[in-house]
Each structure stands twice: as C-alpha cells, then as structure tokens.
Amino acid sequence: MDLEVIRSYIPLFAKAFFLTLRIGWIGIALAILIGMLSAFVLYFRIPMLSGFIKFYIELFRNTPLLIQLFFIYFGLPAIGLSISAEVCGAVALGLLGGSYMAESFRSGLEAVPYIQTESAMALGMSKGRLFISVILPQAISISVPAIVANIIFLLKETSVFSAISLMDLMFTAKDLIGLYYDTTESLFLLVIFYVIMLLPVSFAGSFLEKKMRYSMFGD
C-alpha cells in the first residue's frame, strides 16, 4: 500500500464522503417522516389510506434499493418527469427507509398496553391529547433501538448510489481503481470512510437509547 497515493486520494474521498452523507441524511430524514406518518395511518386504522400504506410498505420492503433507484432515475423521465441523481438518491432512500421505519414505529405504538389508553381516558383526556402525551412518548422510547438499526442500515445502502452515477464513495473508489489500478489503496479508503461515517451513528444511537429509554427501562 502506497501512503503517498492514499494521501493524494483523501480529498477526493472526502468530497464523496460529504456527498454521501448529505444525500444519506436527507433520505433518512425523509424515511423517518414517511415512516411516522405511515405508522399513524396503520395505528389508527384510517380507512382507504391503510390499504395504500400496506401496499407501499410491502412494495418497498420487498424490492432492492438498486432496482428502486433504477425505476425512479430511468423510469420517471420516461413519463416526462426528470429529477437529478441527488434528488433521486434521497427520494429512493426515503421510500425504502420509510417502509422499514413505518414497521418499527408501528411495533412501538402497538407495544403500548391498551390499559394506558383507558387510564388516560378515565382521566378525561381527549384521544389527541392522550396520543401525544401518553402513547407516542412510550412508543418512541420502545422503538429507538429499531430506528437506530434502520438508520445504520440505510447509511450503508448509500453504497448503491454509484449505479446512477452519483459521485459517492463507492463511485469514487471504482473510478480510481478503473483509472489507476490502485485497488488496495482505494478499497482501504472506502472502508475507512464508511467506518468514519457509521461509527459516530452507532455511538450516538447508544447514547440516545440510554437517554430516551431511561424513564421506562432504566440503565
């Protein structure tokens, strides 16, 4: 392994790192939003919408991200809608992640015992009030580990973005290997940058878990 090569590649990888990070986090924010709203629809069994959400979840959970990317990136222009590769990456990640997040949030909501709803009702609380003050905080606290696992999974999935020529980490590595045959150095940097991206998430996740779950589950 040539240290000089590694040093000269770092700026390229750093640029790709920030691009991956940006699209990744926009996608994850989208996933959390879609997931929460979907979980609410399922939890309240909202007619019509529930069926649509179930279909969405099954469709996106059971197809690979790569294929979703292709459909959005090459499919949408075919019907006259064209979006940039970056937006496409974020949207696809958001939709895939949304289907996973929806199930994690829903399992949290449904894990809150019904007696909690009843005792809040017995205190005169409205349905909206008891959902916000009693059910939701408990549900989130229960689903934190699953949500953190989803976030890590989604950040790793960003490695397929290169397929729609986004200059992400994977693309940069493949590009440099193709151009200069510095396979070892490129792959080494690829691994290092993914670890740099994900380790803080893991640590932040554990911290968040501890903080948000203390009241209900202790240390």
Partner: peptide, 20 residues
Amino acid sequence: RKLRERIGMVFQSYDLFPHM
C-alpha cells in the same frame, strides 16, 4: 370527557404512565 373528569377510576393493573 367532562363526565370522566368527575368520575375517578383506579384499575387493577398498575396503570401509571411509565415514561413520566
């Protein structure tokens, strides 16, 4: 809801809100 405010109830299972 107004009526429930006037009728207090305590259940068999401890039903305190665990996150508070």
